[in-house]
């Protein structure tokens, strides 16, 4: 088993939302390069519990890259050094033996820290509740060709719908802007006939809620697209701008 590495972890610890917080360093010996980043965190916590210390609090759920629960800002990037993956899909083979890994929570005014590495991402749910749905039930899966949708629109809607709402876009954005998230949620519905009915109202309400919750103004740096684990494109932001502006001009 020559595939083990030892690591120094510099982890953000914060008791609760009011606590000032601080970094603490931990040493981990013999971590398999085949383990995922979250498994490495589990090993760390087991070590801490055995030492009688408080384990590190971090978000995780499905651990197969589809729920959007795991966060972590690792060595200067959301979800760490690998591209197009969530933290649960990041593996320790991406790190070198003896490396110091800095692990921080998402930082943004819209995502306050609750404890250690866990931030409150309720703001995203609030934005969805402002209009990211269709008001009527659209029934089960329709018969093929009963409702013709072009292949291009179907693909783009599906790509936008792959957003898992993890918040990496906000975490990396120098403006703390949630535009990639909101644009993905507006786009996947605006592109399909079922969602088009409420498209104008949806764009206006979701943008208004996003602004109200204190997210920043998009300046098109494109950092969000680079860090998005699902590769959601900023062409969705252009679509949201289009939807929002045309809705406002019609008023």
């Amino acid at each position: 088993m020559g595939n083990n590495i030892s690591l120094t972890l510099k982890v953000w610890r914060q008791n609760d939302a009011q606590d000032k917080g601080r970094y603490e360093s931990y040493k981990l010996e013999a971590v398999s390069v085949d383990s995922s980043f979250l498994e490495m965190m589990d090993i760390l916590n087991e070590q801490l519990v055995n030492e009688g210390k408080e384990p590190v609090a971090f978000d995780h759920d499905c651990r197969e890259g589809i729920c959007g629960m795991c966060s972590l800002y690792i060595n200067g990037r959301p979800h760490g050094p690998d591209d197009d993956v969530t933290t649960c899909q990041l593996h320790m083979r991406k790190f070198k033996d003896g490396e110091t890994i800095t692990i921080e929570p998402w930082r943004s005014a819209g995502f306050p820290v609750i404890k250690d590495l866990i931030v409150n991402r309720n703001a995203f749910d609030t934005i969805i509740a402002a209009g990211g749905y269709t008001s009527v039930s659209t029934g089960g899966v329709p018969d093929a060709n009963a409702l013709p949708i072009s292949k291009i629109d179907a693909d783009e809607a599906m790509d936008a719908a792959s957003c898992i709402g993890c918040g990496a876009c906000v975490a990396t954005c120098k403006n703390g802007s949630a535009m990639l998230f909101v644009s993905a949620k507006v786009s996947h519905l605006a592109l399909l006939p079922q969602g088009k009915v409420e498209a104008a109202r949806r764009a206006k309400n979701m943008v208004a809620k996003m602004d109200e919750l204190g997210f920043g103004n998009c300046t098109n740096t494109g950092a969000c697209e680079v860090e998005c684990p699902k590769g959601v494109s900023i062409s969705n932001i252009a679509r949201l701008n289009r939807e929002f502006l045309s809705a406002k001009f019609k008023d």
């Binding site: 200067g76 921080e104 005014a109 990396t172 120098k174 204190g214 860090e227």
Partner: peptide, 17 residues
């Protein structure tokens, strides 16, 4: 507004995007 939205807490590991 964007500086305010970014928040007062900075990343210790910078931004390597």
């Amino acid at each position: 507004q964007n500086n305010k939205a970014r928040g007062s807490a900075k990343y210790a590991s910078g931004n390597k995007t």
